[in-house]
């Protein structure tokens, strides 16, 4: 083992020059560097989405992994973009709130429509994160129970207490067999 390690020692790994990922179905090839249009190694995916790519639907609230406002889908699963480095997203497929509309028709996702129909928001700031968490659940389980919906949203902060209307909105889509 130590022999291998010694050999590896001389073979220093170098920093990547660019990162390529898919965001809302579109391939993005981002340079890594210090210029304004580039991605710094320290940038979170949240920062890149909002500041570099202008996708401000994903919200910054706690920036510390505790509130779910910055939730996006990575390869279909809900993750926190504030605790994810953009440079570590190579090859990943990211979906943000902006990517839920039908790309061809512009029609809202049934989940989005259900949030409107149930007024499942008040101030609306945490809504994109909540919708993305719910979307991740529905991707895996199209007919969740109410308990499963609550569990899937248990990492999402909502201070207005729109929880009850949110659960109804998600269940309505679930029952619709979306």
């Amino acid at each position: 083992m130590s022999d291998i390690t010694v050999r590896e020692k001389n073979k220093k790994i170098s920093q990547a020059k660019r990162v390529t990922l898919i965001i809302n179905g579109e391939q993005r090839n981002l340079e890594i560097g210090h210029l304004p249009h580039q991605v710094e190694t320290t940038h979170t995916l949240l920062h890149t989405l909002r500041e570099t790519l202008g996708l401000t639907g994903t919200k910054l609230t706690c920036d510390n992994g505790a509130c779910g406002s910055c939730t996006v889908l990575m390869d279909g699963k809900a993750i926190l973009s504030c605790m994810t480095l953009t440079v570590e997203c190579g090859g990943k497929d990211i979906t943000t709130i902006e990517g839920l509309k039908d790309r061809d028709t512009g029609a809202l996702d049934p989940l989005q429509q259900s949030f409107i129909d149930h007024t499942a928001f008040q101030c609306g700031f945490c809504t994109p994160g909540i919708i993305m968490s719910a979307k991740a659940l529905l991707n895996e389980n199209s007919t969740p129970t109410e308990v499963q919906v609550k569990e899937a949203l248990s990492g999402n902060f909502c201070r207005c207490i729109s929880h009850y209307q949110v659960v109804r909105a998600v269940m309505a889509v679930s029952e619709g067999g979306a």
């Binding site: 779910g68 699963k77 993750i79 926190l80 605790m83 968490s133 899937a152 248990s154 990492g155 999402n156």
Partner: peptide, 8 residues
């Protein structure tokens, strides 16, 4: 923690 954390 919560689901998003456990996913990563």
């Amino acid at each position: 923690a919560g689901p998003q954390i456990r996913n990563v």
